[in-house]
Design a protein around this nucleic acid. Structure first.
Lengths: 155, 155
DNA sequence: AATTTAGTTCTCAAAATTATGAACTAAAGA
DNA sequence: TCTTTAGTTCATAATTTTGAGAACTAAATT
């Protein structure tokens, strides 16, 4: 596979963002590659060769990405290879996941609040505010998604 | 400082969330401690003792947290100690930061889109959708914050 | 049955991250 | 000026993470 310098740069950029989200380096590069490559369906070998990583690194990273639902693959009859691709149509799920994380953090804050020394009034007030805001955002986000869908259709 | 089992558990929970956000372990536990401790203003030594970490670990972690604007400290005249506390009133800033991250990812996706093979129509469509949604959410979130403030005042 | 091949697993090494403890600094107080 | 103390820095140790390469597996092909 041929990658332009521009493409390599973008893979790096996406890789860095994805790493910051907690992905390991090899997996993060694979994500970048699958976003950028001319053909969005790549085989195991193409990935290994494009990123200059070992088969074991590729195998581990691909399985991790499959487990975390960030990629998927298809096969074709009479061809043993798997064709991996980013689940880009899947971003709604990823979005939902982030919301869950937020909710659960809000709940931890609520728990903290229940345990807190009641004498630290100002501090507790701020904490309660934060917990409440997180809850609010969480409630509002699904509506935001709906509105966006509507707006799209409207156009 | 005396910590109940419940408090220790909460420090751990917050620590794990904070680590997942990219903080190093010691810093993440300090964050947890400052949320949970009865007194939300702790000295260097109290932190060292409460978390059983070395002075150097505490020093590094506290400076990291100061730099990233997650904590601050006050001093009192005639007392050389610094009293560290979570910038919990500061969550709006943290929120803004997350939004920026989102925007910049949306921009990377836009760049990817500009470079993409135009023949992969479906893929490109999904990508464009994602980029557009991120942009949309970004535009809407400030209004969400405003509405929340209004709602608060209204109550 | 032997071979090819897509991918996995295992062992181990390299690299990066994190933490320790001791020595040090600098301001304050005696 | 000597001592105390809050915090820093440095060398280095421990731990974790990551990746390589070779051996292996299992299905398909010959």
């Amino acid at each position: 596979m041929l990658l332009t310098e521009k493409q390599k740069g973008l893979i790096e950029k996406i890789g860095i963002v994805t790493e910051r989200e907690g992905m390991q380096p090899a997996a993060a590069r694979i994500v970048g590659l699958l976003y950028v490559a001319d053909n969005p369906e790549l085989t195991f070998e193409e990935i290994v060769q494009a990123l200059h990583i070992s088969k074991s690194a590729a195998s581990n990273a691909l399985n991790l990405l499959l487990q975390t639902n960030r990629i998927e693959y298809t096969t074709f009859s009479g061809d043993r290879k798997r064709y991996f691709r980013i689940k880009v149509a899947n971003w709604r799920e990823g979005f939902a996941k982030k919301m869950e994380d937020m909710t659960s953090f809000s709940q931890v804050l609520q728990e903290v609040l229940n345990e807190r020394n009641p004498e630290t009034v100002e501090f507790n007030k701020n904490l309660a505010e934060l917990a409440d805001f997180l809850k609010y955002v969480n409630n509002q986000l699904p509506g935001l998604l709906e509105n966006w869908e509507k707006m799209r259709k409207g156009q």
